[in-house]
């Protein structure tokens, strides 16, 4: 697919730990079209953050390194870039929003300093113009009286406001790709609703492509067009959101969707669950990584690892997926 903005192929990232070498992600592939919003979901430790960091060239090394695979942004291979070139890409083409806005903002500098610094460095603006632009961006993300609040320090703002500042900062350089790693996980639902709304609005306005990393399938359903589901370092399913939620094909996705507590008309006597827990990345089973917890697992599953196969815009890695039920896409 040459039209893709970002294209990741067979990416493998390894960390050396005191217990041995861990493949945090093992053969991750997906594409992202310009202006598209892609949800990256999965449980804790499945490799979502590592994938995002790899795209940004920020895998801490040591202990980590990209073992193989390719990451292409507009056709350009990123994994072979030097640190200096990467810095250029990071400022101008890709930016990132982190989960914890308090640690991502420098506590001793005002919002104004932090926002204008970025603009001066990457856009070559004068301080004056950069400040105007920063105020404009803050207004766009819905910070009241931005020309005053811009001189605040991070701790003078609430969590929701800090996260909005992060969004303003990330979008101020007009990047092609925004990586948002659990941008609303630390926020309350009402604040989360505000922040997500701003993010989607701005993303549409600027035509930025977004990878939204989250463990909340509800957030994915409401904001994304497509979703990639990861399990233990691998992509198990990738599909347009409508198909994914209507008819999940992978047993893991199915179990995950079923076990989300949601407000129901009739209370269920018992929530559906996925038995067991995620496997230790150091002691992975030989076959399918989900086999231990999977209701459909058989001999084949335990012996051979299923490959990610694409069919009608849906990719699934499973020997016994749910049947494909005519997706509209």
């Amino acid at each position: 697919m040459s039209s893709a903005l970002l294209s990741i192929r067979d990416l493998v990232v390894e960390f050396s730990t005191e217990r041995g070498r861990v493949r945090a992600i093992d053969g991750v592939s997906f594409d992202l079209a310009p202006g598209e919003t892609l949800g990256l979901v999965g449980e804790s430790g499945c490799g979502k953050t590592v994938t995002a960091l790899a795209v940004l060239g920020l895998i801490p090394s040591p202990p980590g390194r990209i073992l193989s695979g390719s990451i292409r942004l507009e056709g350009r291979e990123l994994t072979r870039l030097g640190e200096r070139e990467y810095r250029h890409v990071r400022g101008k083409l890709i930016s990132m929003i982190f989960q914890e806005p308090m640690t991502a903002l420098n506590p001793v500098l005002t919002i104004a300093t932090q926002m204008t610094d970025v603009l001066v460095r990457h856009q070559g603006m004068s301080r004056r113009r950069a400040r105007d632009r920063a105020v404009e961006m803050l207004a766009l993300v819905g910070i009241p009286s931005p020309e005053k609040r811009i001189d605040d320090y991070p701790h003078q703002m609430s969590g929701g406001m800090r996260q909005r500042v992060m969004i303003a900062m990330a979008l101020s350089c007009n990047p092609k790709l925004l990586l948002a790693d659990e941008p609303t996980t630390a926020l309350d639902v009402t604040t989360q609703a505000q922040v997500l709304e701003e993010m989607v609005r701005l993303q549409e306005r600027f035509g930025t492509a977004v990878i939204l990393v989250t463990h909340d399938l509800g957030v994915v359903a409401e904001t994304c067009r497509r979703a990639v589901v990861m399990y233990a370092g691998r992509v198990v399913e990738e599909a347009p959101v409508e198909c994914l939620f209507e008819q999940p094909r992978h047993p893991y996705t199915e179990g995950l969707l079923a076990s989300i507590p949601r407000i129901r008309e009739e209370k269920l006597p018992e929530l559906p669950t996925i038995p067991g827990s995620v496997p230790d990345l150091l002691h992975l089973p030989p076959g399918c990584r989900f086999a231990d917890r999977c209701p459909r697992a058989d001999e084949l599953c335990r012996r051979r690892e299923p490959k990610l196969e694409l069919r009608c815009d849906i990719a699934v890695a499973c020997h016994h997926p749910n049947r494909y039920a005519g997706c509209r896409e």
Partner: peptide, 25 residues
């Protein structure tokens, strides 16, 4: 009501109108 409407629903076909609260706690 605002709290209930703010919960993201894992169903893309039911993107409801939600009450978005203004301001912070």
């Amino acid at each position: 009501r605002a709290l209930l409407s703010a919960i993201p629903v894992p169903d893309p076909k039911r993107r409801r109108k939600r009450i978005v609260l203004q301001g912070d706690v």
